[in-house]
Design a protein around this nucleic acid. Structure first.
Lengths: 197, 197
DNA sequence: ATAATAGAGTACTTTAAGAGAACTTTCAAT
DNA sequence: ATTGAAAGTTCTCTTAAAGTACTCTATTAT
């Protein structure tokens, strides 16, 4: 059975870890809970560990761990349904989840911030983030990060034509460019796109 | 369990290798991270090797290798730089990172799959996912999930005009709709958008 | 009254992070 | 093959911050 403060501290730690991916320091917990003495915090964290609601990895800083499997779910959000104009939200019958980790993780993933409008018709706007998977090989129709003459980098849609490579902007007001294959170096393909408001 | 610096160094190395195809020297890592002492860098690289997050091929220069294992959850990805057509990737001098958990989590977040083209000019295409934060209050210009007459749901940009509410599609071929405020129920605001390829 | 809860505060120990010196090894240009 | 510069290695020293272990006090419920 937890006391009021223990409950608050446990919640605070859970929230902090969920949001920041690492545990808070005692002082940070204190700040969030308006408690000035880290000695007090320490006492209750110890108590929570004794009661089995928390764990500690060694004596490291930020070494508090949550017990159970409640962690590891941060990249998963519930898919509530589909929304279309003029209709109620079409609820998804089964419980369905979107796992962003598929897109986000894996070796060789990195993010580029897009400048310019060359891909607007593909819904990639100026300032958007694209998640790129590093690879040399790409298929027709992929959006790729291409290096031209080992000099210019650009984000375009790829089309191979024999020994030629066409880099196609998804923007009606721009024209595709055609290069000999050996001038083009594929650096990666776009596996995701994200925008934050 | 990685310390803050270990985390930073691991990401820095990952980013460098992804971009340059070879591992950085200790001094280069130091430059990127604003750390003057290569002895310090060395200590943490060794620690990362011991913890299994890095490998070293012999005693060569630039001999750091990434281990394939990736049980690490990356809600944080390195921001490698900005990409614009016709220029090299503009490297980011400081160590920037994109934290997707800001967008993804927090109380009352859920995902909707968008059907239809009513927001294409805002870069939200048919089939895209939008991350919605549940709230009753929204500001002018927000993209909101609105319930009309407790019946139809729709995704539109919001404009309040006295006791009227205007729901504006971001699509030139569609026209805004105006309602009395009491017919409209704001269910949430869009805080993020994502697409997977 | 007394035990449990909640908090302040002080003193001490440990860890993370960084600077830097001195040394060895690797690599590439002669 | 020699050699000098760059890279890596091994130390020590320092500081700031985090964690630990107490004591003392106040409030509240039994």
């Amino acid at each position: 059975m937890l006391t009021g403060l223990e409950e608050k501290i446990l919640q605070c730690i859970t929230m902090y870890i969920t949001q920041n991916g690492r545990s808070p320091t005692l002082n940070e917990i204190g700040q969030l809970l308006q408690i000035k003495s880290k000695g007090t915090i320490h006492r209750y964290v110890e108590s929570l560990i004794k009661k089995g609601h928390l764990q500690r990895s060694g004596r490291n800083w930020r070494g508090i761990r949550l017990t159970g499997e409640q962690d590891r779910k941060w990249t998963v959000l519930p898919l509530a349904g589909r929304i279309a104009a003029g209709k109620p939200i079409e609820a998804i019958s089964e419980q369905y989840e979107i796992n962003f980790s598929e897109m986000l993780l894996g070796p060789g993933r990195y993010v580029l911030e897009v400048q310019g409008d060359s891909m607007v018709d593909a819904g990639i706007l100026d300032g958007d983030l694209v998640i790129v998977r590093e690879t040399q090989s790409a298929n027709n129709g992929d959006i790729v990060v291409a290096l031209i003459d080992n000099n210019e980098a650009t984000l375009k849609r790829l089309r191979k034509k024999g020994d030629q490579i066409e880099l196609i902007p998804d923007n009606k007001s721009m024209i595709p460019m055609v290069y000999l294959a050996d001038r083009i170096n594929i650096q990666g393909v776009v596996v995701g796109q994200a925008r934050m408001y």
